[in-house]
Design a protein around this nucleic acid. Structure first.
Lengths: 230, 230
DNA sequence: CGTGCTATTATGTATGCACATAATAAAATT
DNA sequence: AATTTTATTATGTGCATACATAATAGCACG
């Protein structure tokens, strides 16, 4: 068999769900039944169903069985764009220009968010990311220099802070927030739009074992969109 | 024993990745080695590693082995908010008010997007979603009445179009787009903000077996954010 | 020296089995 | 009738085994 069972079974089940064979919120046959129907082991069906469950298409409960989820498209996976790749995927040449780069005491909002004690300084960076020498996005970042003192010696003019951190700091956890904000004067001039323009912003904060590493906010040029298909 | 192996192994591996035990882009021991290290079957390690791979933390290649992914937080899963639940989770009372509800010929941009032939009409809906009688979000929607003619008789004043569709139309595929836009006069007055305010917009288009069902755009009140943790 | 065949290796997947666990239904008890 | 106990059932998980598949490394041969 060239076809991979649990994938094809998953596809088949998805099709049957989409065709309305099983009503929204309705019960799907038990694993064992499906297994004999498809002529495979229960484990294979289990795997397919678990994948559908993870994708949010079905809900499973012990003894309760598997039922089609009421709300479609409840969750979507998004690729968080990596600037360089994004620019280069359009055939553009990536570059960046550092506007600010110095140790400062973070404002209270940042400080509490990052659980940095008062009075401690952190590295503040402002960067404009360029596509073919034209502004593409504006980045504001704080780096915890207590956690990553080496960054003070990093050649940030050659490699972006993001890329340096990614290459240097071991893998870490983090969170992401999307929002829309009006460009203020600084942002507008940095990315070359009008003041007040609606900007898509991505905040990303990164931790390493409970220690704060960096937080950044990316302001995208107008018209930026994030896509996800289901 | 009480702990579920493949979950705990996944956690353990995650920890070891985050601790830097294996360098970014570096190789992780083979499944068989990890299996004997953890004292479990290879299949169990396999499952843990596949989960990490799906989460974008490691990259796996046959014969090549498993290596820690270069870019962290490349993908994030977002829960697409369901308005009613969202409102009610804050303890608010959900409601909605229909502003427009009639058959119209969609503008070209919508028509091509939806692959609707020219001249055909579709149901155009504008709805304000309320939290405690105050505007919360504004929705603009087109429904393909050829695919779902029953919607013309639906009690849309009682149940929102979204909920009606979800309950009526079998499961379908779709895509989601996030963007930021400036509120025009209509949007601003609908959700009670100033013209020009930065609005977080979610576009959602839904299909059923290649047949277009509906497309909608949701305009959120200022300050709306979408979170995701990793 | 390069080309093409042949191991070798790590992951991908399926199977059959066993048992664990949660939730329900049925039965027994108070 | 209300409550507790005891099956029953569907999913969750693990294991050992077997084979498939992709990518690589090594070797032989022209």
């Amino acid at each position: 068999m060239t076809s991979i069972s649990h994938h094809s079974i998953r596809q088949s089940l998805l099709g049957r769900i989409q065709s309305g064979e099983w009503a929204l919120g309705g019960l799907i046959p038990a694993e064992t039944d499906l297994a004999s129907e498809y002529g495979c082991a229960r484990g294979t069906v289990n795997r397919a169903l678990q994948a559908l469950a993870e994708a949010g298409l079905v809900v499973r409960k012990r003894k309760g069985g598997t039922r089609v989820c009421q709300m479609p498209v409840r969750q979507a996976k998004f690729e968080i764009p990596v600037l360089r790749e994004q620019v280069e995927s359009f055939g553009g040449i990536y570059g960046h220009r550092i506007i600010a780069n110095k140790l400062k005491t973070p404002p209270p909002s940042i400080r509490t968010h990052l659980r940095i004690p008062g009075g401690v300084k952190a590295l503040h960076l402002q960067t404009v990311h360029l596509a073919d020498d034209k502004p593409y996005a504006f980045e504001e970042r704080w780096v915890n220099t207590q956690a990553v003192p080496e960054i003070l010696n990093a050649p940030l003019d050659k490699i972006s802070a993001n890329e340096w951190l990614v290459k240097t700091v071991p893998f870490s956890s983090g969170d992401v927030v999307f929002s829309a904000i009006n460009a203020d004067k600084k942002i507008a001039s940095a990315i070359g739009t009008d003041e007040g323009a609606a900007i898509f912003a991505i905040d990303r904060t990164t931790w390493l074992e409970d220690e704060f590493i960096t937080t950044m906010r990316l302001y995208y040029k107008e018209g930026f969109q994030l896509h996800s298909h289901l």
